[in-house]
Design a protein around this nucleic acid. Structure first.
Lengths: 164, 164
DNA sequence: CCATTATGGACTAAATCAGTCCGGTTTCCA
DNA sequence: TGGAAACCGGACTGATTTAGTCCATAATGG
């Protein structure tokens, strides 16, 4: 639970992908790079663009590019863009509470929501990318050093190099 | 998104309800108190009990009571109990990533997950209850007399009345 | 013009969740 | 000792949400 939508996952992936280019990139190119199906990438790109995270260029030779640096984009921002406001439950002060008049927790989730928003606002996409690549490398080296303790071919596939 | 399940909401509600009793309370009594349908409350109670948050007493005159004080129960704990591990996406280091070998974010969500877990671990159910009741009171009084300064002391602890 | 590319919306299938129900077991009490 | 009260565990169903796709349209460059 507290499960993130896949779209948000794709969004981060896409943003990182875009971060590797200086010029505009088409959605199909991005799809090829990330391995995510084209229509899905297109959808994510549209959403991100609508939110202002990307700048789009229509027409031939068009595409997308980042509106700002990855360091300046927080996870909170991305999640909010693709999945709407970060709010843990329907029972918040602003809206109506399904539990009705008996609800003893009116507004109490606000504290929680704020805490989460703070946590997410403090992590940039750049940071995420930074935390992931070395992790993969380290893991790959661990596997190498332990030599043949690796039996799972799928795992072997997973640590395969990806372009960078 | 990042939407909490209703079960978790009910769980907190139920825990706070239980916190008002010293002796064991039956699920039907709790249902009556909270206004949540009986089967649903029963389900939540069962889950919470299985997780060790509650102590159950079977048989006639049985019921549930808190296993520990509300101050010692974090939201993280409750959410994990009813909704499983707090993990933002399937793309975590431990499990398999759906994005496959192309995933450039292997393990990067772990940072995010940890941040969220930290945030949630720092908020107790007692705190939530505390933050909610005064809010309701203040709101009620604001409606009554808007220009009143009301630095009302926190009498949240002894708020026994609970109807709206 | 025409090929290319984003845009916006609608749509279907799949997954998940909320809520309910039932048969079983344990315990109390008369 | 028997019956009622209450928890236990799991299965089931309908509703909601999400994932993923597709199409018609508008804009741009050559």
């Amino acid at each position: 639970m507290l499960r993130l939508s896949k779209l948000a996952d794709y969004a981060v992936l896409t943003l990182v992908g875009l971060g590797r280019h200086d010029e505009v990139v088409t959605s199909s190119a991005l799809a090829a790079e990330t391995g995510v199906p084209e229509p899905t990438v297109a959808k994510v790109l549209k959403t991100l663009s609508a939110d202002g995270l990307l700048v789009s260029q229509r027409g031939a030779r068009g595409g997308y590019r980042l509106a700002c640096k990855l360091e300046d984009i927080s996870v909170a921002r991305v999640i909010a863009a693709v999945d709407g406001p970060i709010s843990l439950t329907a029972c918040v002060s602003g809206g109506g509470c399904d539990n009705g008049a008996d609800c003893a927790l009116y507004g109490s989730w606000d504290v929680v929501n704020e805490a989460i928003r703070d946590a997410l606002a403090g992590i940039s996409i750049a940071k995420m990318a930074e935390m992931s690549m070395p992790a993969r490398r380290i893991r790959a080296e661990l596997c190498a050093s332990r030599d043949n303790t690796l039996h799972d071919s799928k795992s072997a596939d997973q640590v395969g190099t990806f372009g960078g």
